[in-house]
């Protein structure tokens, strides 16, 4: 698994000036853009380690720099092929950023990269979670019908705690999957990512009501 991933990694040195590159799509030294395969790893695009934990400020900084560096407007006078490449790269950088900046999408990405299943293929949620979500929904419904603000506030606290807990489990599982994907971790991460969707729906429901 790791072998094939390394094989797909684009060069880390500029093919033009042979200087090390932070991002494989743009050389800061000779300011040359470098087309990379469409399936280039999102972390690699930003020159970040393939880990779940990431410095969000650093990601944002690199995103802004890259967006500026490969912006098609900067190449307005270049050959049409070059402009096409920059447009493709800009889209790739955008997509990678959208996924990596969101903790859930980032975990989902690591799961898919490691060969995990999609939610439609494996629908299970962690044991007991659906029943708990169902009960919370019923309690929210009741509190809304009584217009019980105190109860809703309490329910919101419970749901937020639940979200934090699931998020923590997702983080540790995603880290394990990024490091060394074991079948068991893949399955469990799938279940928790399924689960977090229900909890987020509860949060949305509460933010509408409270």
């Amino acid at each position: 698994m790791t072998g094939s991933m390394e094989a797909a990694t684009p060069p880390t040195k500029c093919t033009h000036c042979h200087q090390p590159m932070r991002s494989p799509v743009f050389c800061q030294n000779c300011r040359v853009i470098n087309p990379v395969p469409p399936d280039t790893d999102y972390f690699t695009i930003f020159g970040l380690p393939r880990r779940y934990q990431l410095d969000e400020k650093e990601l944002h900084k690199r995103f802004l720099n890259l967006t500026r560096d490969v912006h098609p407007d900067r190449f307005a006078t270049s050959a049409p092929e070059t402009i096409n490449v920059t447009m493709r790269l800009a889209a790739q950088v955008n997509e990678a950023h959208e996924v990596l900046k969101d903790p859930v999408l980032r975990a989902e990405y690591l799961l898919q990269q490691a060969g995990g299943k999609r939610p439609s293929e494996e629908k299970g949620a962690p044991g007991g979670m659906l029943a708990e979500v169902m009960e919370l929904r019923e309690q929210i419904e009741e509190a809304v019908s009584r217009d019980d603000r105190t109860a809703l506030e309490e329910l919101r606290r419970r749901v937020n705690d639940m979200h934090a807990e699931v998020q923590e489990t997702v983080a540790s599982l995603a880290e394990a999957v990024a490091d060394q994907p074991e079948a068991e971790d893949l399955q469990e991460l799938r279940a928790y990512l399924n689960g977090i969707k229900y909890v987020r729906n509860l949060q949305d429901l509460l933010s509408d009501k409270v």
């Binding site: 629908k123 949620a125 659906l130 169902m134 229900y198 987020r200």
Partner: peptide, 13 residues
């Protein structure tokens, strides 16, 4: 029976 659709977050009992 309590089931859910993780794609949309629907829950059914």
């Amino acid at each position: 029976g309590i089931v859910g659709a993780p794609e949309c977050g629907d829950v059914m009992k």
